[in-house]
Simulated assay, not measured.
Amino acid sequence: MGLANATVAVLGVGIAADVFSLWAGGGVFGVVSDVIDGDYGAVTEDRLDRADTLYGVSGILQGAAMLGAVVLFLCWFHRVRANADVFAPDGHRKTRGWAIGGWFVPIANLWIPRRIAVDIWDASSGNRWLPGAGQETKRRTLLNAWWTLWLTTGIFGQIASRQYRAAEEPEKVKQAVVSLMASDLVNIAAAIVAMLFVRRLTAMQDALARSGWGPRD
């Protein structure tokens, strides 16, 4: 359970970084809005520098939190894949190495990790050993929500970041900041669902392990 708890914790840190980014983005939005409205008296150099600095810091914090989350999540994902081998040795379409490598294959990483996650989920549902547990195999709502939000936040984040880097006029900057703030909200939702996914899958494996089948996370 320790690795799962650490993964959940670092995802929580990522949420905090996203909340800070939302607050910092609000500051940039306010400055740019004043510029667009022609209220130049409210846009002092100190205010402009502070807003820009805070937004830059928020980006660094988000990047650091993301790196930590990726490392721990991949370690956890590989662990639950290894556990699932014990629960259902013949129930996997990919070898253990793909639990990490599959995330780094261009294009194919849009579906390979989910395929692996489905096999892990089904193997960990306990439908072979625990009476009534087979319903988890059919109910993959949480897994699908996690994967959908993961893809959404990645695509949306890339689009918003490019929009912000390309923005030069105040109106374009304002629109880009709105996009980035929306991306932060999606990131938060994705992190929350990822936390639930980690906890649910770990609990499923723990219940199966306690019944006498395989190792515990």
Rank of each mutant, 00 (worst) to 15 (best):
A65M: 01
L54I: 02
V57C: 08
W23V: 15
G56K: 00
D46F: 07
V32K: 06
G27A: 11
A51H: 09
R50Y: 10
G59N: 01
G56F: 01
A17L: 04
I60S: 06
Y40P: 12
V28D: 06
T53D: 09
A64E: 00
Y40T: 15
A51C: 10
L48D: 11
A64P: 02
W23C: 12
G41L: 08
I36W: 06
D37N: 10
I36F: 08
D18C: 09
A65F: 01
I36A: 07
L22T: 10
D49P: 02
V28F: 04
I36Y: 05
D46C: 00
Q62Y: 01
V28L: 14
D39F: 13
A64S: 04
D18H: 11
A17K: 00
G25P: 04
F29A: 15
L61D: 03
A24H: 02
V32E: 11
L54E: 07
A64G: 06
A42D: 13
T44S: 07
V70R: 00
D49K: 10
G30I: 08
A42V: 12
G27L: 11
V28M: 15
A69G: 01
A42L: 15
S33I: 12
V19N: 04
D34N: 13
I36D: 10
L67W: 02
S33L: 12
M66V: 01
D18L: 11
D39T: 14
A64K: 01
E45L: 09
D52H: 10
V19M: 05
I60Y: 06
G56N: 02
L67R: 00
V31W: 08
D46W: 07
R47Q: 05
G68L: 01
S58T: 00
L22W: 12
L22S: 12
L48C: 04
A51P: 11
